Simulated scan of single mutants.
Amino acid sequence: MMGREARATLIRLWARQILETITLVLLMLLIIRITLQNFHIDGHSMEPTLHDQEYILVNKAAYLLQEPARGDIIVFQYPRNPQENYIKRIIATPGDRISIQKNTVIVDGTTLHERYVNKDDPYNPYPTINQRVVGANQYFVMGDNRGNSSDSRAWGMVPRQNIIGKAVVVYWPFDVDNFGLLPNMSDVFAHVR
């Protein structure tokens, strides 16, 4: 049989363990909340990579130690209305020269072979762009569904401070063809300086 003092010690140990567990869980939840955010896709501008009504996770800490890169899919505050969040692919980074002629995208003299672009909608509703230079701390973004995307061709560059994070995972719904990690498309830009 356990004495009164031994029982009190055991209760203190259990209470301490429970408190430590609760503190650890709360700390983990805080870290997850700071670094990850869910995002709901509303529209078809990123087809076929992302679909309307999907849910994704955005890594808000992705650019703490590195700069956003060509090919990254980012969520950002729309420059004309910071209350709205958009999702697009980075095509050109600070200092790049970009040209777009119909469906051909050229970055720093290199023609991109963009396998992620929606081939079913090749229409480009925007005028030709010739040798536009991407300014410091700015990014040129486009949707993968080029005929149905409001992007840098229409309203200009995305300032660095507007970037919320990098899209990394499609987590809902389960039955889509792109469930899970988003593919890395950096090889499309491998020959750009």
Rank of each mutant, 00 (worst) to 15 (best):
Q66D: 02
P183C: 06
E67T: 03
R153C: 06
T9A: 13
G180H: 06
H40P: 01
N130V: 15
N145I: 13
V134G: 03
A69D: 12
V58S: 01
E20R: 14
R97Q: 15
F39V: 05
E114S: 03
R80D: 09
V107G: 07
L57W: 08
K119F: 13
V58H: 03
A69Q: 15
I129K: 08
Q138I: 11
G147R: 06
K88W: 05
R132L: 14
V192E: 04
R146Q: 13
R33A: 13
V58A: 05
N81D: 15
Q37G: 04
S149I: 09
V134S: 11
A62T: 08
R80H: 09
L26M: 12
K88R: 11
I98A: 06
K119T: 15
G143C: 04
E114P: 05
N38W: 12
E54T: 02
H51W: 07
G95C: 12
W172Y: 12
P125L: 10
A62G: 03
W155A: 10
V176I: 07
V134P: 05
I11G: 10
R89C: 07
G135V: 11
I73D: 03
L29V: 06
H113D: 15
E5P: 01
E54C: 00
D121N: 14
F39D: 06
M28D: 00
L24C: 01
E84Y: 00
V141N: 08
I106Y: 07
D187M: 03
N184C: 00
V25C: 03
G143P: 04
H40I: 06
E54N: 05
N178Y: 05
S149N: 07
N103R: 14
S150Y: 08
D52C: 00
A92L: 07
A61C: 01
L50F: 02
D121Q: 10
V188P: 04
D121E: 15
R16K: 14
P94S: 11
W155L: 07
N59F: 08
F174R: 12
V107T: 01
Q37K: 06
V75I: 11
L29M: 15
K166T: 02
I100R: 02
L50G: 01
Q66E: 13
E5C: 09
T128D: 14
G3D: 10
L57R: 03
Y86D: 10
M1E: 06
N59G: 05
P159C: 13
T23P: 06
V158W: 02
Q77G: 07
Y63P: 01
L182E: 04
Q53F: 06
L64G: 00
V168N: 03
Y139P: 00
Q138T: 07
N137M: 10
L19R: 11
R16V: 10
Q66N: 09
D108Y: 12
A154L: 14
R115W: 14
G135I: 10
T128W: 14
I18K: 15
G165A: 02
R80C: 00
Y63S: 03
Y139W: 04
N124H: 14
N137T: 12
R7W: 05
F76R: 02
D96Q: 12
S152F: 09
I87P: 02
H113R: 15
K166G: 04
P79D: 03
I164P: 05
Y78C: 04
V133M: 13
R115V: 12
P125W: 08
P122A: 13
M28L: 15
